[in-house]
Design a protein around this nucleic acid. Structure first.
Lengths: 345, 345
DNA sequence: GTGAAAGCGCTAACAA
DNA sequence: TTGTTAGCGCTTTCAC
């Protein structure tokens, strides 16, 4: 898959140059305290002179350690995940880890393949956002090998045995729906996403709870699934409008879907926030600058990433407590897209 | 930096189990054609039974090859780079490479550190967006080691010795400025960015050329630098408005800056596209859904990433031609933010 | 504090 | 087609 490269300066050469043994040179490289100043300096000098570069691969092989971490996300396109990535990456980087990246594009097969690759590369740990419908086998396998796995953002399968960092999607769904109810809406659609995912089910649960609390009966026809893309959101919204008794408000699966939904409304000459109220989920950066600015549920992807990185770091340095579950509380961010007063219907 | 892991099934064990030598087992793993069907199957079976996982690290160490590629970008936050990342990642993934990610946050020191790390990890190649003001030393070092480097998106230093994939920033600047001139503007600011970067200088060059062609004299006070963030763009725009003779149009360093500029305008009650015309650069996804939709120069980050990945792959598989320069042509995307008619001034 | 020897898991070169 | 031998560059014992 590649090409040969030129000769590497080895620790042996450094040792020869400095007139010590390879073992001693190795201790110097790793900053061992049991080395006299003189030898240390001799070796350090030789390293510089020869242009020595530490071979972490060889070291990892021999020592059975790894400073590599695998990060597996489902899609880079969604800002939620690029923010998550940023959080993980930066924290891990600070701790001295190196990150190997993988993207599943929501394919279970691809996820297994990536986990395999991670194993082959001897990663010391994995942070992963699991694909809906994936099997737990591969993940368990990593665990059996003693490779800690921290799950983020999605809870698929019976995964209580793993560390998990995510957002409270039920609470988020409740928050969003309650807000719309308080604005006077009673016909509220839940738009976009796919019922096969745990995230969808949780947000829907919150949606249902809020309706029930307000004494509004659930109308199944207002549950409109779609791809979690802008296009998917647009189509879903159009289907909602074609209903015999269309909604006056919509809680969207996430911000990307909400953008699509709002674009769909504009296309048919309706104004989100005036003709129909919209609430999203995630609070990605774009939601503040969309027109109208999107009311949404903040899900703090970057924070999730940072927490996951910390937990993984602890696991990799020997912490063996029970699996942790860290559920961040979402927050309602009110902007203009939800300010519409419901039409009588 | 990590923890020990459990025992790995080795090729030796597989070989024992199958009753062949380690070398034979190795050939089977790598799909050599010089192996009889029976032995292949025996070995394959043993692998499955024992749960064998290929150790790519050990293999790379021994074979002096590497299927790992380093990807170094400057900031993940900017959608331009996350799109670039997506392009690189997907292409490389398809070719069977694994990607190690690094982010420099525009710090030359961090860049050198990352390049060192890449060396330590024995990457087979590197794709990198160089930091303005970085030194060429480390990069040359990689090259001396026989590790191919493909530069993307930015041309810092005398880097003609490396492969490069980017956009024609001069043409882009010209395109943007010409468009504004055609709309009737004569006082056009160039807003945001930092004159230390090659990208800024090139876009400014295009801007100047277009002005000159139209017989408009360059007014240095209309060159307003800033951080390449939304906030930076906002502040730069405000400074522009405070000028004794403010501009009627602005060509912004990139889309993110343009968003900031437009937000700044809105804050003082002006409407971008009506009171003042705005053109951005990059055509990131958000530019289509901003309000008003942003006129911009498409820079095709994902395509840049795909091309860079292809070139690197060729280099890694032995192509030794002269350094390639692939300069994509930008395209003007006209939307509503540039439709304003210039005020008399 | 430092050195000698063994070996991580694999592939390369050769021999059979 | 398959086995033998050597060794990638490093860390790990365990001597001294």
């Amino acid at each position: 898959m590649t090409e040969k490269r030129r000769s590497r300066v080895t620790l042996q050469q450094v040792a020869n140059h400095a007139g010590v043994s390879r073992a001693t040179a190795s201790l110097v490289v790793r900053g061992s305290p049991h080395i006299s100043k003189e030898t240390r300096e001799k070796v350090l000098n030789s390293m510089k002179e020869l242009g020595y570069v530490y071979d972490r691969v060889a070291a990892n092989l021999r020592s059975h350690r790894s400073s590599t971490v695998g990060l597996i996300i489902t899609e880079i396109g969604n800002p939620f995940f690029s923010d998550l990535l940023a959080g993980v990456h930066e924290s891990l980087d600070q701790e001295g880890y190196t990150v190997i990246l993988g993207t599943t594009f929501d394919s279970p097969a691809k996820q297994d393949e990536l986990l395999s690759t991670m194993l082959e590369y001897r990663v010391g740990g994995v942070i992963m956002s699991p694909v809906p419908g994936c099997s737990v086998d591969m993940v368990e396998r990593l665990k059996q090998w003693g490779i800690p796995v921290v799950l983020v953002a999605r809870e698929e399968l019976p995964m209580r045995q793993f560390d998990y960092v995510g957002i409270d999607n039920v609470a988020g769904g409740r928050l969003a729906t309650k807000h719309l109810i308080q604005q006077g809406h009673r016909r509220i659609a839940f738009i976009g996403g796919f019922s096969g995912s745990s995230v969808w089910r949780d947000r829907k649960k919150g949606y249902c709870e809020a309706l029930e609390q307000a004494g509004i009966e659930l109308d199944e026809s207002l549950l409109i699934q779609s791809l979690t893309t802008r296009k998917g959101g647009m189509e879903a919204m159009k289907r909602a409008l074609e209903l015999p008794n269309p909604p006056t408000a919509a809680f969207c699966y996430n911000d990307v879907v909400a953008f699509g939904a709002m674009l769909g409304l504009k296309e048919v000459g309706m104004m989100p926030g005036r003709d129909i109220a919209i609430v999203g989920f995630d609070n990605i950066q774009e939601s503040a600058i969309f027109h109208p600015p999107l009311t949404t549920i903040a899900a703090f992807p970057e924070r999730i990433g940072v927490h996951a990185a910390h937990i993984l770091h602890k696991r990799m340095t020997g912490e063996t407590s029970e699996p942790k579950r860290l559920i961040l509380q979402p927050e309602l961010v009110v902007r203009e897209s939800s300010s519409g007063i419901p039409h009588s219907s």
